[in-house]
Design a binder for these strands. Sequence first.
DNA 1: AGTAGTTGTCTAGTTTATTAGACAAATCGA
DNA 2: TCGATTTGTCTAATAAACTAGACAACTACT
Lengths: 241, 241
Amino acid sequence: MTKSQSASGGVALWRQIADAIRLDIVGGKLANGDRLPTEALLAERFSANRHTVRRALAVLAEEGVVAAEQGRGTFVKSIRRLTYPIGKRTRFREGLKGQAGSLVSVSISDKIENATARVAEALGLKPGTKVVRTESMSVADGVPISRSTTWLPYRRFPDFAARIKEMQSTTMVFQSYEIADYSRASTRISARHADVEETRSLNLAPGAIVLVSEAVDVDPEGEPLSYALTRFPAERMELVV
Amino acid sequence: MTKSQSASGGVALWRQIADAIRLDIVGGKLANGDRLPTEALLAERFSANRHTVRRALAVLAEEGVVAAEQGRGTFVKSIRRLTYPIGKRTRFREGLKGQAGSLVSVSISDKIENATARVAEALGLKPGTKVVRTESMSVADGVPISRSTTWLPYRRFPDFAARIKEMQSTTMVFQSYEIADYSRASTRISARHADVEETRSLNLAPGAIVLVSEAVDVDPEGEPLSYALTRFPAERMELVV
DNA sequence: AGTAGTTGTCTAGTTTATTAGACAAATCGA
DNA sequence: TCGATTTGTCTAATAAACTAGACAACTACT
């Protein structure tokens, strides 16, 4: 009897198993160097065939999370999740300092467009007002950890795109506009499956989960500075409030 | 040529389509009563066969998110996400007040156990210390919106389980222990696929996403009161910091 | 009444997912 | 060295997923 996918909601069993094992690893139940249960035991635990388990392990091996050694077993190779602290004073680079060796932010593209209803509301503008939109992503130790879309009022930051490319840090660009300090007004957090673009740019297995953060930063007078929509791979990042 | 699942990471195409359309709805791109694109157009958009799109729509119809009318089209029926505000002073029932007609919390089970390393650290206890563990869930307007596991030090709250069953509100139980006020020390947010138990108790399509919140509440002196691990269906809830 | 456009149903064929069993190859300890 | 344990490879069979095409049933508009 085949385990039906309809009973599993259209998610292949091998993927469910891979997700479960990956969760045990990034969640800390299995530490670096630990030996996983044997394929036979995992098959029993998930009520699946050994071949199905092997397919899950093959995926994890390709991700570099585990490595199998014939005759010995399969071992954890891995990485823990990064923690991104969110609060009144939220700074991306500061928050991740010390958790990763290298942290590189790349500006992908930018354009000037008219604010949609949502963007306008977040920035306290009238819909249709000119805004700067920049697309960027961040890579920690060679692994992509975020993909952001940021909107700012064009009137105040006509040159934002050029400056962020040069300075790489939002904090520094704001300083170049004479904004010495800024703070987080609100952060909205949700989760969903990664779309095609995110799967590609974040180098995710399709069907992976992204944490979505919608953040509004304001200057000391309470004036909205930026509206950022950031997607984090849930398997690599967690947020702490 | 069949679209391979391996190229799609083990997630069936019909499920990806269903997720994408549901996201358009809960995200507000499609409003209540709107007509969806025709099956032929959706098939083109997702590079899939019309039958595959129909399967996705069938799932959404069963969820009550859309309804098809022969000869006319398929229409949005839907629901928006509830928003749960998180901050220094976080109160579950207060936060959701006004967003739902009814809000019922149910205590499922409880037991006394020894604190694991994680629980002990969160509550500032030595591992192995006796703690009360309660399982509960909440239902808004008949729809499950959260599933929680809460740990508290047994020494201070020996009778917590019995009282929470009676009063249904954590705030009130704390008051019954002479704790007039309490506040949120930290909230850790992550996301993952729902496990089998959550799929069942939260009435989710298997493979659905849950937002996971790990929260520690403390009394005015800073003493940890409770450690709660709450799972929210990502398609029904979002968190605002 | 007629026609275009839409959802509903049916048959059929190919690819992927899963199970099942058997045996080879490598490791480790008695 | 032997034997138990574990991963690696192969063949085969069944169920689910996906595609393809045709036509029925219903709606809305002219």
